[in-house]
Design a protein around this nucleic acid. Structure first.
Lengths: 182, 182
DNA sequence: ACCTGAACACCGTTCAAGT
DNA sequence: ACCTGAACACCGTTCAAGT
């Protein structure tokens, strides 16, 4: 008989690792979290993580994908609300984890896996914003550029600790400049 | 007599360390550069660096300050040119080093020294932009918010590899939205 | 005052070995 | 197929000792 816990069904342990990692990344950041710490939190040995993931960067990608999935499904339930509210909420989702977005940017240069994740993330975000911005009546020509500006402003907000009302002010200003009536 | 090189005059060796670090950070990034590598490039032993700097983060701060100093003095010589050109040039200065700005953001949460440097840098940049934006005729009320948006867009450009003409397009769009005629 | 050699605790990762 | 113990090379940093 197996020494430990009983084998969990397919993929359940992988998810346990991701849950542990998400918690620690969110609290102490990526660099502040060792594989050792993740393993301990998940109740396994550090090297076991390497059975499920090629390396630490890939654990990060797993955590990020969970965040995106959660963010998108939550966004679905807010389909009725104005762009402004949905933006505000989406930023909230990605802000909590101690600037994981900064870690992504810092590692893009050194990890192929992170680089492609980051590229995909940007395309997705831009695509969503373009369709939102078009709905509101911005000419299609303009929409692409405005969306990229919005992406940068959003990432700026994610990268810098700020007050709730600063966030409102900046998003409102950006939307107003772009021609969206608040 | 001293075993090595002869003592350089006050501060000259410190500068040698910074020069070595700047070169390596620019080429391989902060995480991709070990204290060992910096020391070797500077022709000293790794632990000697700790005589001049409290730690690796402080070496980074030294490198960044050199960059800012160079950027500002260069900006002086461009006093006559329009905002747009000056912005474009300033971004160029900080873009070369493999996303050092991303490293700064990633370490703000873990290093007090980096956090205060970063806060100061933002205030400086915002102050400069506010005065520039006012000169161009934006109402003072607006200027502060527009400047913060600009800071985020600039950092976005610094954080993401992009084509030269993308940069032009985004800065132009931002300035135009803000009411500055290109 | 300035610099080194040797060591420290820790890191991400590997691998042969177990079940 | 899944997991471990033990080891690897490396990291940033410390410190007693030298000049």
């Amino acid at each position: 008989m197996p020494r430990n816990k009983r084998h969990l069904e397919q993929g359940e342990k992988k998810q346990a690792i991701l849950t542990a990692a998400a918690e620690l990344f969110t609290e102490n950041g990526f660099d502040g979290t060792s594989m050792n710490a993740i393993a301990k939190q998940a109740g396994i040995t550090p090297n076991t993580i390497y059975w499920y993931f090629p390396g630490k960067d890939d654990v990060l990608i797993g955590v990020l994908n969970d965040l995106v999935r959660d963010g998108l499904t939550e966004a679905m339930t807010m389909a009725g609300l104005p762009v402004r509210e949905r933006l505000m909420h989406a930023i909230g989702v990605f802000e909590r984890p101690e600037s994981l977005m900064n870690t992504v940017h810092a590692r893009v240069a050194h990890s192929e896996a992170i680089a492609t994740w980051h590229a995909r993330f940007h395309m997705m975000l831009e695509q969503i914003l373009i369709s939102e911005v078009c709905k509101v009546g911005i000419p299609t020509e303009r929409a692409a550029t405005v969306s990229r500006l919005l992406v940068y402003v959003i990432e700026g907000l994610l990268s810098h600790p700020h007050q709730e009302n600063d966030r409102h002010e900046m998003i409102d200003a950006m939307l107003e400049l772009a021609g969206v009536d608040a």
